[in-house]
Nucleic acid binder design. Structure first.
Lengths: 172, 172
DNA sequence: GCCCAACGACTGCCTGAGCAACTATAGCCA
DNA sequence: TGGCTATAGTTGCTCAGGCAGTCGTTGGGC
């Protein structure tokens, strides 16, 4: 067992991945009970936190882990299920908005408390405030370095992004 | 912006996810240059760190994020590409081992240094040792709680579990 | 005003992965 | 020994999502 795989760097990544996988599984299980996938939940939250409960398709893609075609399809499904609708953009006929419907908002309201409870139970509640703060501080610094701006993966270099003042601290 | 989405719990999960996504994108980009997917790399490392550079299909599935059918298919592809082979299990004719070939080991050797460099560059190297230790400690505690059951138990703090003689200390 | 490059959304095609069904083997128990 | 159940691996089916190509729209240069 003297191999390179005990390298602390590998271990560090392994931990991060295991935590991610573990939490994701919990989230998926809970969301599934509400008839939502993880992606749909993310779409719903991104829209719900935006002015007018809406975003242009492209902006939605930029805020999620999806490509624009992925967004098209997820919005298709969610529109079919009544969770949101498309609305034409008055100022640019190429664009359209995805807007959360009343049903969608209600579904989100039903889902959020349980979601927060699970986060509390399995993540934030596992650590005392100081340890949690240290963890989040570390994550934040790595996040800032790795610059998740290019979530879509179009260009992973993305040296500079436009207005990140918008909601740096608020991003999910 | 007075909505629930600024809840620190949401923010915490958001950070974790952004870090995960950011690192994954870097890894994928680097591995892609070597003609490996993230999953294939994981399979290769899991096997390479196991005794005899081999694991039974089921054990491999348990150690990765894949289902058994997923493992079947990854191993199909990697066998086709010459990175590994199947070997019959002498003691149980239902089982078969996936074994890393010389080509597979070589590919891994070519890939690992760059991989470690990227981890260092974007993750561990972003923090001073103390902050990194705090981060990892927090992650470890959450990991232990969320218990990624599939890959359960490690030397860390694991109270005690049954038979993980397979390769307990080897997990990522 | 006209042209053309850039852009937003959508679609065809393909890959990767999970679930469930299936086959073969193992091990138990009467 | 014969049968029953559990297990290992594979395969059919389905679906989500990415890439690249398409279509309509926009806006800048002339």
């Amino acid at each position: 067992m003297t191999n390179v795989f005990d390298d602390p760097r590998i271990t560090a990544v392994g931990l991060l991945y295991e935590v991610h996988a573990g939490l994701s599984a919990r989230f998926a299980a809970q969301l599934d009970e509400q008839g939502l996938s993880v992606v749909e939940f993310e779409v719903l939250t991104r829209l719900a936190r935006s002015p007018g409960n809406q975003l242009r398709m492209t902006d939605l893609a930029a805020q999620t882990s999806l490509s624009t075609s992925g967004v098209t399809r997820v919005v298709d499904r969610m529109e079919r299920d009544g969770l949101l609708t498309r609305r034409a953009c008055p100022s640019d006929r190429r664009s359209s908005f995805a807007v959360v419907t009343a049903v969608g908002m209600q579904r989100l309201d039903e889902t959020l408390p349980g979601h927060l409870r699970i986060i509390e139970q399995w993540f934030t509640g596992q650590l005392d405030p100081q340890a949690l703060a240290a963890l989040l501080d570390g994550l934040r610094r790595v996040r800032d370095a790795v610059h998740p701006c290019a979530t879509a993966g179009s260009t992973d270099t993305a040296p500079e992004d436009e207005i990140q003042a918008t909601d740096d601290s608020a991003r999910l």
